[in-house]
């Protein structure tokens, strides 16, 4: 059992990237930041966001760091995700942005 777990932990996952435009009127302000963080925390994958493809990358599970990104409406939010549930995480994160965090 220990060996199996060790193998699983050592396994590397492909890094998935995608982007979405922030459509909600106020961009990534406090409330959307909280929603994004809460959603990200539901996945085991490492989830990062950035305003440009070359970063700087921010841990999407940290509410303080996500708020500091201060992404305005119309900004493109890039995602970089790696983990066993990475694909589901990416789909969920993109859906949240597309839906304007339930505000648009």
């Amino acid at each position: 059992m220990h060996d199996a777990n060790a193998n699983r932990a050592a396994q590397t996952f492909a890094t998935l990237t995608a982007s979405a435009v922030l459509v909600n009127p106020v961009g990534l302000h406090a409330r959307p930041s909280v929603k994004l963080t809460q959603l990200a925390k539901g996945f085991t994958a490492k989830i990062e966001i950035a305003l440009a493809t070359d970063g700087p990358w921010t841990d999407a599970k940290s509410p303080v760091k996500v708020m500091r990104v201060k992404a305005p409406q119309g900004a493109t939010l890039h995602f970089r995700i790696a983990g066993p549930d990475g694909e589901a995480a990416l789909a969920a994160m993109l859906a949240l942005v597309h839906d304007g965090f339930g505000e648009a």
């Binding site: 406090a30 909280v34 809460q38 925390k41 539901g42 940290s62 509410p63 303080v64 760091k65």
Partner: peptide
């Protein structure tokens, strides 16, 4: 309070909740 609650809502333990709030 908002940050601590956000951290807590994701099921984080007490130390992580405190650490996250103190990141401010």
């Amino acid at each position: 309070a908002v940050i601590a609650a956000t951290e807590s809502s994701g099921g984080s333990p007490l130390a992580a909740v405190k650490r996250s709030a103190e990141e401010f």
